[in-house]
């Protein structure tokens, strides 16, 4: 950059004031003032709820502020006009206790429905299960291979040479392979077997509207989603995990089913042929 920081500062200051997105935009669809386009099925439901709350709070905000400012102008101190002596009004108190209560309970009902029936409903049987383990400072990603089964895993087995805690005696684990990129077939349910090796990390993908902490010492298996848009995204660690936290991430590729099957086949056969435990259970190739 040939501009000084401050220089750049003022330039983009101007840019933002104009509401213009800066140059060199990222491959991902991002808007300067609004959330990225949703790219998962449950994400769409979350957005629905989000917009509901957004409009609700927007109305509340505008109403309260308009009334407030109107009062401030109308009842500003003026000669000869003195304030009305009033200690309050019980009917009003009841009204503005009951109405918000009703709204909040309704909102909770709505949220709870989405929480249980959409986000944490039983993942479909045909879901593709992927093991992901966070460690200072990267993600390990393991695929089940051709047989589509990860096999038994146990947090207690997690170690440097066994990042996912695989029970290596389980035949299902034989053709498992690791990958640096999180390759996902579009429109196919994906289920994550989430672990952490050392400290707490997190599985965060804004486009999928997904966040889940990965806690060392326990496996979290309730995260599942359905990618709906082919494209490249980023998996970010969004739980402070040390000095390397700020760029602990992994690339995500959502591809067509065919493309995925092809990739999956190559990888798993390769894993079977040269069965190198490192490539299968520990490090990224």
């Amino acid at each position: 950059m040939k501009y000084s920081p401050v220089h750049r500062g003022f330039l983009s200051f101007a840019l933002v004031l104009l509401g213009v997105s800066s140059a060199g935009a990222a491959p991902r669809t991002t808007h300067l003032w609004w959330m990225p386009d949703v790219a998962s099925r449950s994400g769409q439901t979350i957005d629905g709820l989000f917009y509901f709350i957004f409009y609700l709070t927007a109305v509340v905000f505008v109403l309260t502020q308009v009334v407030y400012v109107y009062f401030l102008i109308k009842y500003r101190a003026r000669k000869g006009v003195s304030a009305t002596y009033s200690h309050g009004n019980n009917r009003l108190e009841v009204i503005w206790t009951v109405i918000p209560t009703a709204i909040f309970l309704g909102l909770w009902g709505y949220s709870n429905h989405v929480w249980w029936d959409v986000i944490h409903s039983e993942p479909p049987a045909d879901a593709l299960e992927i093991a992901i383990t966070g460690y200072q400072f990267a993600f390990g990603i393991q695929y089940p291979g051709a047989d589509g089964r990860l096999g038994r895993t146990d947090v207690k087995l997690i170690a440097n040479d066994n990042l996912f805690g695989n029970d290596k005696s389980d035949p299902a684990a034989k053709d498992n392979f690791t990958s640096a990129v999180l390759e996902l077939p579009v429109d196919r349910p994906v289920r994550i077997r989430l672990n952490a090796k050392d400290v707490i990390h997190a599985f965060y993908v804004p486009e999928f509207r997904i966040y889940q902490d990965a806690v060392p010492g326990r496996t979290i298996d309730w995260v599942w989603f359905v990618p709906t848009k082919i494209g490249s995204y980023q998996l970010a660690c969004n739980q402070l995990c040390g000095s390397g936290h700020y760029n602990m991430k992994a690339q995500i590729q959502v591809v067509s089913q065919e493309e995925f099957d092809k990739w999956n086949k190559e990888k798993s056969t390769a894993a079977l042929v040269s069965h190198d435990p490192d490539r299968a259970y520990a490090l990224n190739p």
Partner: peptide
């Protein structure tokens, strides 16, 4: 709202 918090947490 739990689901929204998943997104903005």
């Amino acid at each position: 709202s739990t689901p929204v918090d998943i997104f903005i947490h």
